[in-house]
Design a protein around this nucleic acid. Structure first.
Lengths: 411, 411
DNA sequence: GTTGATTAGTTCAGGGGGTTAACATATCCC
DNA sequence: GGGATATGTTAACCCCCTGAACTAATCAAC
């Protein structure tokens, strides 16, 4: 397929060193994605490289603290026992930071994916400014990383808003004031660069990484924190769109001419399946056009209560979730007709509501999805909890090392 | 994820020969995408390779009849004149075949993109069976290719239906009988392999290739031949989806609970913006639920008439197109909110109706698209005519040579 | 014209890195 | 204990890029 001229990575010249860079990644990923400690010989068989090359490559990876040998050789029947290789947990670490309307969290993962440090804090109105709080937490965590003898390989920040993917710098966050956050973080990180990315995208990466080889190739991750966002993974790659504005699922029109939305449109999914919309469906009907002021703290308190009420069989709650599921189903059917995805993952606030949303969603998919009779995508809740985006941020930093170990080893 | 150093399948081991394969592609594409004949030195500057390497690579490409030197050296001021390099039109050729409900066409393009042979035929009910007609046309064209001293590097078949991307073999074509077509074509091509792909996808590729460097990075190409399909190019790559069923724009729900659709759903875009829907909007209203039988030939005859009537200012026609545009706008706004594309291209039957569709579409986008106030994607008609899919098929064959010249030169 | 500056293209030694083939190593099984 | 078998390492070989020197062809200025 035609790659547009001189835009893609593929347009860098290859030199003999590129071969090694490529194969280092190949070997490292073979180790990373193996279920158990894997031998050099198995890596060779799996990658198509020779045992000789794999030995040399593994030596480089071991020297670089990306891979280590497990202690005792493992006997596998006849033949010389093999020495197992696993990812080295004492090498590079990724720092993930999640900035949200009601809370912030910071976590650190090592190359194996294990979370080594985790901190989060709720944000109260009128409390410590976001930027200061985050910077303080980050400084603490960086100190802790050093005490664990890990090396920070980078940091990523998850924000509920639009990010400019070309610079990775500019941020438009409609629901919160993010000014000063980035510069405060850069200072807290001693000038180390920070990747800024949409939280839905990073939550999708987290899901992908958490599932490992079982991760769907292409999926959409609904992320209902504030509004309804979505992270999109297509053919294993995160898709960001022209401006990095992809995944605005919340403003997909479900009922043209329906409820007015704050975005200026009408009939947006958010108005039927968003947290506030569900809350509104529970309240007695108001005169058309009247939008009630939301008491502070309402949004944060509700989703948990929703699940409890639904579990208790509250009919109003079940009806509200049925309506939300129907709207989600319509919007998702559109996305699925367009993208023919493997799966839809319900994350954020919708994760714990999934037991009551999946059925109405699937009812709409059965009706509206081309080819639904033959093969339907899986619809299920995220396997991760609330900190998915922070985890995704930390892991995305490590993905860079995994994808291009030579780049990490070089300096 | 960060792109691995090589464009090639990320999980194949790289050997020293991969470097050459990669760089051959780099040099070939530098020649292909240059506006004018380009010198070895310029290629070196543009690719980042040394002049020495480029010379060696170019020699291989010239020997393989992929590149040739232009006759006379060009003086460019001071210094030794440069010898221009251009794509060789006498080397590999791609065969593109389009199979449609009402017509079939076959074309051949050379590496420069020039169409060297072009044949098409209308299909009448009860005439020669599709498979036989196509096979006969193909045999003729293959003979002509040989007489032109071109070498067929492959063939691709565009079909209005669902294709299994893994095998590239299986075809589900709802609106026409494609049984036997593939095997008849394989026979006509002396056993050469045929790539089968959705026509909307191939039309999108054609658009991409026709625009060259000006092609949008990510776009959706509406393809309204039978029903409404769409080809999707994301980050410069064709996106097919899990089963190769992506782009089913026609069955995206626009008005839930609206008009019943043959697919079993309701409110599908096809029922408002499809060719038959536009025709129906022109006719006097029928009782609800009554679906008129379509006289044979009606579909083929109408789109041309539509444009003429609209140009003449026919109010019923303008109203029908306004409604179609509104529905398209709603569906496209959904797609754009999700994918943040650079452009939407109206192709197929909608291409010549674009003058009347663009305005209502943009009205919906202004209303429903997040960020529309800041930046709106371009909405415009395809630059290609009716044979876009056949062209795209031929070009996609050549894209393989362009992407991996070593693979073509090897045997 | 001759000479120098400038740019295009080629030649060749050097080095990185993968492959193949042989060898060393460590276990199982008879 | 001696083969059979599988793992890991070593060394000769080949591919292909780089860098530097060299040749080639033009312009510009004296």
């Amino acid at each position: 397929m035609v790659q547009p001229p001189f835009i893609h990575h593929g347009d860098a010249p290859a030199r003999t060193g590129s071969v090694r860079a490529h194969n280092l990644g190949l070997v490292l990923r073979a180790v990373a994605f193996a279920d158990a400690p894997i031998s050099r010989a198995s890596v060779a068989a799996r990658t198509g490289l020779t045992r000789a090359s794999v030995s040399a490559l593994v030596e480089t990876l071991i020297d670089g603290r990306l891979v280590r040998e497990t202690g005792a050789p493992t006997r596998n029947g006849v033949g010389r026992p093999s020495t197992g290789l696993v990812l080295d947990a004492t090498g590079p670490a990724g720092l993930g930071i999640e900035l949200n309307v009601e809370h912030v969290s910071v976590c650190v993962a090592d190359l194996t994916g294990a979370v080594r440090v985790r901190r989060s804090a709720a944000l109260a109105d009128g409390g410590v400014p976001r930027a200061e709080l985050l910077a303080a937490m980050t400084r603490e965590v960086v100190a802790e990383v050093e005490s664990l003898a890990l090396t920070l390989s980078g940091a990523a920040l998850a924000v509920p808003g639009l990010v400019d993917p070309s610079s990775g710098e500019l941020v438009v966050t409609p629901n919160l004031d993010a000014a000063g956050v980035r510069s405060a973080l850069v200072a807290a990180l001693d000038g180390r660069p920070i990747l800024v990315e949409n939280e839905a995208t990073l939550a999708a990466r987290a899901e992908q990484r958490a599932l490992g080889a079982a991760a769907p190739r292409s999926f959409l991750q609904v992320s209902g924190e504030v509004g309804i966002g979505a992270g999109l993974v297509l053919d294993g790659q995160v898709y960001r769109g022209r401006h990095g504005w992809s995944g605005e699922l919340g403003h997909v029109t479900v009922w043209p001419g329906g409820r007015a939305c704050g975005c200026g449109s009408d009939g947006c999914l958010e108005q039927y399946a968003g947290v506030r919309a569900i809350a509104r469906a529970l309240a007695p009907p108001e005169p058309a056009g009247f939008v009630p002021a939301e008491p502070a703290g309402l949004v944060a308190a509700e989703p948990a209560g929703f699940a409890a009420r639904a579990a208790a069989g509250d009919p109003a709650m079940l009806a509200a979730l049925g309506e939300a599921g129907e709207a989600l189903g319509i919007a998702l059917a559109g996305a699925l007709n367009l993208l023919d995805l493997d799966a839809v993952v319900l994350g954020g606030a919708h994760a714990e509501l999934a037991p009551w949303l999946v059925e109405p969603i699937e009812a709409q998919l059965s009706r509206r999805l081309v080819g639904a009779a033959v093969s339907r995508p899986a619809v299920r809740a995220s396997v991760l909890g609330a900190d998915a985006a922070a985890l995704g941020a930390a892991w995305s930093v490590l993905d860079r090392v995994l994808d291009d170990p030579a780049g990490w080893l070089a300096p």
